[in-house]
Deep mutational scan, measured.
Amino acid sequence: MQRVNMIMAESPGLITICLLGYLLSAECTVFLDHENANKILNRPKRYNSGKLEEFVQGNLERECMEEKCSFEEAREVFENTERTTEFWKQYVDGDQCESNPCLNGGSCKDDINSYECWCPFGFEGKNCELDVTCNIKNGRCEQFCKNSADNKVVCSCTEGYRLAENQKSCEPAVPFPCGRVSVSQTSKLTRAETVFPDVDYVNSTEAETILDNITQSTQSFNDFTRVVGGEDAKPGQFPWQVVLNGKVDAFCGGSIVNEKWIVTAAHCVETGVKITVVAGEHNIEETEHTEQKRNVIRIIPHHNYNAAINKYNHDIALLELDEPLVLNSYVTPICIADKEYTNIFLKFGSGYVSGWGRVFHKGRSALVLQYLRVPLVDRATCLRSTKFTIYNNMFCAGFHEGGRDSCQGDSGGPHVTEVEGTSFLTGIISWGEECAMKGKYGIYTKVSRYVNWIKEKTKLT
């Protein structure tokens, strides 16, 4: 034993070699072989497995989906700052455009905790909710729209109204504003409101030439003092309507412009014939205590009207009353817009006519005020429907199939267009061939041609 100890002390290297040989010859039971080890760690190889990531292109799944990435790591994937920024906006807080917040056709661009709407022409605001041009839906104005110097929408209202708090709607500024039905039992019968379409306001006024200088022999019209197929109006439903009495009662109609003036057809009036105007009328054979009678003290036909040349060209006249009318729910003026808007309103496509005229061709006159909704007829169809001249200051309205029309005794009465609950004068009943005849239409004086003249002559002093 002493000898062994001496050998170990003198030859430590020998001992180490012996131990190493023993270990190498022993069977290893701690580690699995290569094949079995792979069965336990069965993990798919990654895209760049075996390579240094710093030297390969980034992978979106590896960089940002398996674990949260930084902007720089995302930049490695896209290799483009702009594309990385677009991805980053949604990656950080989701897609803010998912709810489609942009209105009126706006395009949404996502941002971090926010979004941006790219608005089409005519709109602005956070969600493109603000109209900035009158060309689109009248700028959301209830009545009139004008573009300011910086191309912003400025709404306005006709006389007797003021802008509401929203700067879009119009509200009454006087007790009985024009064009409004205020009798409670008839307010439910107000005709369907007309909503502004998209309009090209630059070209809204037709490029028409008034044929002022045409000389033409007097034409022989049949029954051209021209509501057939209409309905009984309720008291106060058309408070701007008046009836004219002269040699015979209810020979023509008219509309209240203001307390002192009536507008009617020029062919209705004769110099030297006494005319009485009755406002607030409903049943011409009954006294309903809503009527107001006034005498006409002055007749002003349009300066281009000449019955000797043509009885229905420039067929418009103004009547001055001896005493002002007292405005109330049964006696209310009709609204008159400017030339541009009167023309736009007419193009809405349908209007209402009213009167006490004959209820059928050569038949009896109506006792109760009649009204009828009539569609506008395109000019080409209008011209083809008659052998008589249709001037540019006239328009056609009615039904091709016949059966409904204005008729004798309705002449001078109103053709009105309702705009968001307020009625505007767009025409004056003038003439036609018979009444409600198939293929024939009622012919009306186009008020847009005469609004400046009306307003100039009827100013209240």
Rank of each mutant, 00 (worst) to 15 (best):
A279L: 01
A207N: 15
I256N: 00
Y47S: 11
E288A: 07
S255V: 14
E286K: 09
T225A: 08
Y352M: 05
C157Y: 01
N80V: 05
A337H: 01
D315M: 01
V92Q: 14
Q90K: 11
D322T: 04
Y441M: 10
P172D: 04
I112D: 11
E67P: 01
D405R: 12
R83S: 13
L52K: 05
Y441V: 13
R384Y: 06
T81H: 12
T186Q: 15
F399T: 11
N48Q: 02
V296F: 01
K293H: 10
D198L: 07
E76S: 03
Y441P: 10
W356L: 08
G122Y: 05
Y201I: 15
Y371R: 15
I112S: 11
E35F: 10
G94V: 13
C335L: 00
L325T: 00
E420H: 08
G229I: 13
C134I: 03
M394S: 08
K146H: 07
A9Y: 14
E208M: 10
C102Y: 01
A233Y: 08
K137V: 11
R294K: 04
A265H: 02
T445I: 06
G349A: 06
C268A: 01
G398L: 04
Y391L: 14
N283L: 10
S99Q: 12
Q90A: 12
L20T: 04
G254V: 01
A265S: 09
N166G: 05
L367Y: 12
V353I: 15
S49N: 10
H267S: 10
G351T: 03
E320C: 03
Y305T: 02
C268F: 01
C18F: 13
L211N: 10
K168V: 08
K109W: 06
V419H: 11
M6W: 14
L321R: 00
L318C: 03
R46P: 02
V243R: 11
D223H: 10
K45I: 02
L20A: 07
T84G: 05
V248T: 14
N100G: 06
D405F: 11
P414V: 14
K247P: 13
E165I: 09
E79I: 06
H302S: 03
A207S: 15
N213Y: 08
A279C: 04
F348L: 08
K293N: 07
I262V: 14
R226G: 13
T342Y: 02
M437H: 10
K126A: 14
T271Y: 07
N38E: 14
I40L: 12
D33K: 10
E270Y: 07
G230M: 08
S25V: 13
T133N: 13
L346E: 04
E67C: 00
H267R: 06
C145F: 02
G412A: 15
Q408P: 09
V199E: 13
I40V: 12
V359K: 15
Q185T: 15
W118Y: 10
E434A: 14
F360T: 15
T381P: 05
D93C: 04
F31V: 13
P324W: 03
V296Y: 01
Q2Y: 13
V4G: 13
T158K: 02
K347Y: 07
V257C: 02
P197I: 07
N452Q: 11
Q90N: 14
W118Q: 14
W453A: 00
E82I: 05
C128E: 03
C97Y: 02
C97T: 03
D33S: 13
L367F: 11
K168F: 15
T264V: 05
A265Q: 04
F71P: 05
V228N: 07
K339T: 10
V296C: 03
F388H: 15
V181R: 13
T85W: 11
N135H: 11
W88P: 02
V296G: 02
T225Q: 14
V451P: 02
S329D: 15
C69Q: 00
P301K: 14
T194P: 08
F224H: 10
I40H: 09
R140I: 08
P172H: 05
N5D: 10
E124I: 09
